[in-house]
Simulated scan of single mutants.
Amino acid sequence: MLVDDAVALVPSIPGRRALLGLAGAPAAGKSTLARRLVSGVNDRVGAGTAAYVPMDGFHLSNAQLDRLGLRDRKGAPETFDVDGYVHLLRRLRGDRQHPVYAPDFDRRLDEPVAAGLVVAPGVRLVVTEGNYLADDGAGWGQVRDLLDELWYVDAPRQLRERRLLRRHVRGGRSELEARAFIAASERPNARRVERSRAYCTRVVAPGH
């Protein structure tokens, strides 16, 4: 059903492009759902119809986080380049004649990667996802105005935190370090994201 709803967002007029946003707490399943939607749309409508552009590419680099004293808050709203993300969304809406390059995020490096993604001119639906797409903080409030729909991806806290623990241990933290980071950073971030739920078009809980 969710793929059906994503297909319905694809503009029927050539040269037009729609943007679907997925918001939700860390490890709610946003990226998994985004990839599934893009794959489903491309299977049904045709290859190259949809593309995936995550917000995570706009993480500040670890060097910048160290400079700002924010390394232990990585993942909080102030650790992203929200102005850069908003600018990209405007380009995706407005420039349908040229390839649009976007940064990606490498979890192995724990760093953003410049121009890791490209949205071809023929793409008619972009699925983007991130924690703060529905946030009303400085800069973030502009994001909602650039999206055709914004879905909130919901998942139980216990499930999310199990996923986060695995993610951080795979990333090189000890289990003790991972649990401390979840308590100090991920959990407060999740509470903030949950408060933005009312700004979303709908709530989905795929596969949970």
Rank of each mutant, 00 (worst) to 15 (best):
V203I: 12
L19I: 13
A190Y: 02
G29R: 00
A184E: 11
P54N: 05
V118N: 00
G57V: 03
G57I: 01
L9K: 00
R191D: 15
A28W: 08
V53L: 06
V10I: 04
T79V: 06
L19G: 09
R173Y: 00
L9E: 08
D136T: 14
H87D: 15
D95G: 06
E78N: 08
D154C: 04
V169Q: 02
P206G: 01
L65E: 00
V119A: 11
D145V: 12
G29S: 04
P14H: 08
F181P: 04
R167V: 05
N42E: 14
A47P: 08
V204T: 04
R71H: 11
H59N: 03
R108K: 03
L109A: 13
G116C: 01
A47H: 14
P112M: 01
E161G: 09
L150C: 13
A8Q: 01
R124W: 07
R91I: 03
R197T: 11
A63G: 15
R191S: 10
D136L: 11
G57A: 08
A198M: 06
R191I: 12
L89D: 08
V169K: 01
R17T: 03
G137K: 09
A190H: 01
R73D: 04
P112K: 07
D135A: 15
P14S: 09
D148I: 00
A184I: 03
A114H: 00
R202A: 14
N131A: 06
E149K: 14
W151D: 04
R166S: 13
W140N: 10
A184H: 14
C200I: 03
A184W: 03
A25V: 07
L2D: 00
L60W: 06
A76W: 12
L9F: 11
A76I: 07
R108V: 12
L133Y: 01
L37G: 05
G24M: 06
V204F: 05
G94K: 09
V113A: 03
P14Y: 10
L22K: 06
R17L: 04
L68F: 13
G94I: 02
R157V: 14
H168M: 09
V143T: 10
R16T: 02
L33F: 13
L70C: 06
R170T: 11
L147Y: 00
P77G: 05
K74Q: 08
R16L: 05
A134R: 00
D110K: 08
V3E: 12
V143G: 07
V203C: 02
Y52H: 15
R166Q: 12
P99R: 14
L146N: 03
A134C: 07
D56Q: 02
G57W: 07
P54L: 01
T128E: 09
G29L: 00
A23D: 10
T49S: 12
R108N: 09
A138Q: 07
L176Q: 15
R166D: 14
A190P: 04
L150V: 10
V118L: 06
R67Q: 15
V153R: 10
Y52G: 04
G21V: 11
P188D: 03
D154Q: 13
L9H: 07
E175T: 11
A23H: 07
N189C: 13
K30C: 03
L88P: 08
G21Y: 10
F80A: 02
V126D: 10
T201D: 13
N62K: 15
R44F: 11
D83Q: 10
D83I: 01
R16P: 00
Y199R: 01
D66C: 08
